[in-house]
């Protein structure tokens, strides 16, 4: 018990310290922006990891929820006169509700069938966003009003750095909380054996649904944060490629490893920036890297490193 508690606080403390110290070595505001992108992506990835890594259910359409959150803070203030902060909440609520309604039938599916169904959901959301151009600006996207907090207009990449860092800390805290609780155990149990979980009294469908809703809310909040930070949204954020990116972050960092999702997000956000020196080969290099790391680190980076470290200690 004690070690669990410590591990949780150690991770949070290490993360907070890193977030506090990083700006000291940032030479320009560009770095603040890249780091903020990492925090936002990591938030979405952690949510998806609760669904995929803990509860063992895949979602290939998760950017759809990211898009709902992003467009909520765009459409809410622009068309409906909703305050931006309330729009974040409304986006999260809508995402959670949609996940709940759609999750009921599709989470009964397994493996490939669930993958296809969630993919379909993601495509559907992206399609609605692209076609409802009167509300969403269509394929061109739309601007997002600046966030105003108690009369203070939030702007500047350093400000957003701290806001997104805070969101990620909260997201990490909640995800770590879950691990050693009846809900977290139910997730992991149904991942390993649905049959045994049900016989132990775990209402498997209910817990799958909970994981799906949690993951959707995480993605939605991350989407809202990114949209407000960018001051702009476009349908790509809800698109299939973005869904694949989120899954890659989770798998690359390590299924079930919360720290892994942060590392995975960092790799997928930072690497393309570094790889621009390869110009047109950028995507090729990224793809190659993912394939190679999946061959040599099937469990993901963080679990693999953890194993190496414990082995080294012995």
């Amino acid at each position: 018990m004690m070690t669990r508690l410590n591990r949780r606080s150690v991770i949070l403390l290490a993360l907070a310290t890193m977030m506090a110290l990083l700006p000291l070595v940032f030479p320009s505001s560009y770095y603040f922006r890249v780091a903020s992108l990492v925090w936002v992506s990591a938030l979405a990835a952690i949510g998806l990891n609760i669904l995929m890594g803990k509860a063992g259910q895949v979602s290939l359409g998760h950017a759809g929820f990211f898009g709902i959150g992003a467009y909520a803070v765009a459409i809410g203030p622009a068309h409906l006169g909703v305050n931006a902060l309330a729009a974040v909440g409304i986006g999260a609520l809508l995402s959670g509700l949609l996940a709940f309604l759609v999750g009921r039938p599709i989470l009964r599916l397994k493996g490939h069938y669930l993958a296809i169904a969630t993919l379909g959901l993601g495509v559907l959301i992206a399609m609605v966003i692209t076609t409802e151009s009167r509300w969403t600006g269509g394929p061109d996207g739309m601007p997002v009003a600046k966030l105003v907090l108690f009369g203070w207009r939030v702007s500047g990449s350093d400000t957003w750095y701290w806001i997104t860092a805070g969101l990620l800390l909260i997201g990490t805290w909640i995800a770590l909380n879950l691990d050693d609780t009846p809900t977290g155990r139910a997730f992991r149990a149904l991942h390993d054996s649905e049959t045994a979980a049900r016989v132990a009294g775990v209402a498997v469908n209910r817990f799958k649904l909970q994981a799906f809703v949690i993951a959707a809310v995480y993605a939605s909040v991350a989407g809202s944060a990114l949209a407000m930070m960018n001051g702009f949204v476009n349908p790509d954020q809800a698109g299939f490629l973005h869904s694949v990116e989120l899954v890659t972050m989770v798998v690359l960092g390590g299924l079930g490893s919360i720290v892994g999702s942060i590392v995975g997000a960092a790799v997928l956000v930072v690497l393309p920036q570094v790889l621009t020196v390869f110009q047109e080969y950028e995507h090729f290099m990224l793809g190659l890297l993912i394939i190679v790391s999946m061959i040599f680190m099937r469990d993901g980076m963080v679990p693999m490193l953890a194993r190496l470290i414990t082995r080294g200690r012995r």
């Binding site: 139910a186 149990a189 390993d192 045994a196 132990a200």
Partner: peptide, 20 residues
């Protein structure tokens, strides 16, 4: 049908699910 990625204690703790 065991939960192979969970510890032995956690396996039994899942068994207490309905008591929790």
């Amino acid at each position: 049908q065991i939960f192979h990625r969970m510890t032995a204690a956690e396996n039994v703790m899942v068994g207490r699910h309905l008591q929790e």
